[in-house]
Computed example of a mutant assay.
Amino acid sequence: MQAVVSLYGLTGFENIELSKNEHLLLDSLIRQKGETAAVREASPAHLATRSSPPFLQIMGDKDEYFGLSTVRVLDQKLRDAGVSSTVIVIPGGAHGTYNWYRLPNVPDWERQMTEWLNAKLSHSGPVGEGIQTREPTPHIPSSR
């Protein structure tokens, strides 16, 4: 693997309540090792090593499922292992990209992601037609 881009991804199971989906994924490991050990072993933040690929994580600071703190933990673990790690925070961004376009002051994360991938994969061509420049959404104060 040459590079990882994570959009609002789960980076650890330790600080979330395991839902039905997580139990489907982890129950056999939990039966073997116990919940604490299984959760730790399955959490990407604990798998960071010097041989991990460079990471780009893009996460809203209002993600209602995982929270920005999980991204910070993986970021630090990668850096501690000597791995390139970059985080782009979407101010006011919830889980998923669907609402990011309506927020004020959102970084041009699509362009940043593409440029990051180009740099990590040594691609020297143009960024591409798929990314359109858009004007920042003006902030409209509420009328309270």
Rank of each mutant, 00 (worst) to 15 (best):
V4C: 13
V5I: 14
S6W: 10
Y8I: 10
Y8G: 04
G9E: 07
G12A: 07
F13R: 09
F13E: 04
N15I: 00
I16M: 01
S19F: 01
K20V: 12
N21G: 00
H23E: 12
L26E: 12
L26M: 05
D27N: 08
L29Q: 10
R31T: 02
Q32R: 13
K33H: 12
G34P: 10
G34T: 14
T36S: 15
A37K: 15
A37T: 11
A38L: 13
A38V: 10
A38F: 09
V39E: 00
V39S: 01
V39H: 04
R40S: 09
S43Y: 10
S43L: 08
P44R: 12
P44M: 10
A45G: 04
H46I: 00
L47R: 11
L47M: 06
T49N: 10
S51A: 14
P53F: 06
P53Y: 07
P53H: 07
P54G: 05
I58M: 03
I58K: 01
M59H: 15
G60N: 02
G60R: 10
D61H: 06
D61A: 02
K62G: 00
K62D: 01
D63L: 07
E64Q: 11
L68M: 14
S69C: 04
V71H: 04
R72F: 12
R72D: 13
V73F: 05
L74C: 04
D75Y: 15
Q76G: 06
K77P: 01
K77V: 04
K77R: 15
L78S: 13
R79C: 03
D80S: 15
D80F: 11
G82S: 11
G82Y: 06
V83Q: 15
V83W: 08
S85I: 03
S85V: 03
T86Y: 04
I90P: 00
P91N: 09
P91D: 02
A94R: 08
T97F: 10
Y98I: 11
Y98H: 09
W100R: 02
R102T: 07
L103W: 12
P104D: 00
D108T: 01
D108K: 02
E110R: 15
R111C: 02
M113A: 14
E115G: 01
W116S: 01
L117A: 05
N118I: 05
K120Q: 15
L121C: 10
L121W: 13
S122M: 02
H123N: 07
S124M: 06
P126M: 11
G130H: 06
I131H: 06
I131A: 03
I131M: 05
Q132F: 14
Q132N: 11
Q132D: 10
R134S: 06
P138W: 01
P138Y: 03
H139E: 01
I140N: 14
P141Y: 02
P141W: 03
S142C: 03
S142W: 01
S142E: 13
S143Y: 14
R144S: 14
